[in-house]
């Protein structure tokens, strides 16, 4: 029972992912929401590496590499948007940005 299999890693990743998802939906601070997205991405990365190890294949690690790059790009653009919005609004509350309401 106490052998370390990939299932342990996957369960941990599922936990982190769920926490990130809940945080994304609950928090109103745009920056914190972004951090939650990073949490979810990391959880996914963890699963990739776990499967890579379990299946003895380099593909999973390659995927992690690309996820890292995309996450970096996403953070750059996302933080740029946040800076632009916050400069005009003096508010980090995502609920204030609702011009698209029907």
């Amino acid at each position: 029972m106490f052998t370390l299999t990939e299932t342990w890693y996957l369960v941990l990743a599922a936990l982190i992912f769920s926490i990130g998802a809940v945080g994304l939906l609950v928090r109103r601070n745009v920056l914190v929401m972004f951090m939650c997205v990073e949490l979810m991405l990391n959880a996914v990365n963890l699963t990739f590496v776990s499967f890579s190890t379990a299946l003895d294949d380099l593909g999973g690690q390659t995927a992690v590499f690309f996820v890292l790059v995309v996450a970096a790009a996403e953070v750059v653009v996302g933080l740029g948007i946040i800076v632009a919005i916050m400069r005009r609004r003096q508010s980090a509350d995502v609920d204030d940005i609702s011009l698209m309401r029907g």
């Binding site: 590496v49 890579s52 890292l68």
Partner: peptide, 25 residues
């Protein structure tokens, strides 16, 4: 799990760059 390179860039890119960027903002 033996992914040494990924661990390194995880620390460098994520902890070193992205989180610093967050704090910066």
């Amino acid at each position: 799990q033996g992914a040494y390179f990924l661990a390194a860039i995880q620390v460098i890119v994520y902890a070193g760059a992205i989180v610093i960027l967050f704090l910066f903002v």
